[in-house]
């Protein structure tokens, strides 16, 4: 099965259950919004999807690769943007990209051409020599997205990537990643607690207190009422 598949995944921090029997499937090339209030278990799910830690219960499949059986093949297919910035502030934009490329086994001309292409796509080529510390929050996020595409993953995982950004930048980045899904066929899992980042045609998983409340397309789930109202009704939390 391609795309992204999570089956019966549970995880606990000591006695605190963070994820409880979570199952959903994101078809190949689909944009799926993982919507949940703070503390819903989104970041825990991302930790498991990126194998920062593992759970004895449940199964994760990335682009047809079982995370438990073939972790390296599964990780090869993932591009990830964590909620916390993971850029090296003291290194240049280009060095950040080529360092990441090297962690995926890419070096020399190939790494540089991939880095340049990634920067071109986000219109940041002219800033490649600048240190990351000199970039604003929006450009740093763009850079992280550019970076996660360098090794040509099939599945993109973005954990609240627009946190701390202004509305315009937030919108631009959301649109951009939607385009990646439509135009390049990337499977996207986009965790957020902001309903305005979800489009009608998106797949939607509503996560609350470690439980999946609903899955389906956004338009089907929300019906006639605005998504924000529906989300508030289901979780009792203002998004």
């Amino acid at each position: 099965m391609t795309g992204l598949s999570v089956q019966n995944l549970s995880y606990a921090y000591g006695t605190k259950q963070a994820l409880d029997d979570v199952s959903f499937h994101v078809p190949s090339g689909a944009f799926c919004a993982l919507l949940g209030p703070n503390g819903a278990g989104k970041s825990t799910l991302f930790g498991l999807l990126t194998r920062l830690f593992t759970s004895p219960q449940g199964r994760i499949e990335i682009a047809g690769q079982d995370m438990a059986r073939n972790p390296r093949n599964a990780l090869k297919n993932i591009g990830v943007v964590f909620q916390q910035p993971t850029l090296d502030l003291d290194l240049s934009v280009q060095l950040n990209l080529t360092y990441f490329a090297a962690l995926h086994g890419l070096s020399g001309k190939l790494a540089r051409s991939r880095a340049d292409a990634a920067l071109d796509r986000l219109n940041m080529r002219d800033r490649s020599k600048e240190t990351v510390r000199d970039l604003n929050g929006g450009h740093r996020r763009r850079l992280e997205i550019a970076r996660c595409l360098i090794h040509r993953p099939k599945v993109l995982l973005l954990d609240e990537p627009t946190v701390g950004l202004d509305t315009t930048t937030r919108r631009a980045i959301t649109d951009y990643v939607h385009d990646l899904s439509v135009n390049d066929g990337l499977t996207v899992l986009w965790a957020t607690h902001l309903t305005d980042e979800v489009q009608n045609s998106d797949q939607l998983v509503i996560l609350h207190k470690g439980l999946v409340l609903e899955t389906g397309t956004c338009s089907t789930i929300r019906g006639a009422i605005p998504l924000n109202d529906h989300f508030l009704n289901r979780t009792g939390t203002d998004a």
Partner: peptide, 12 residues
Amino acid sequence: LGSMRLLLTSPL
């Protein structure tokens, strides 16, 4: 800071 995450999610 999170940069260790980057290292640990490498397929190596």
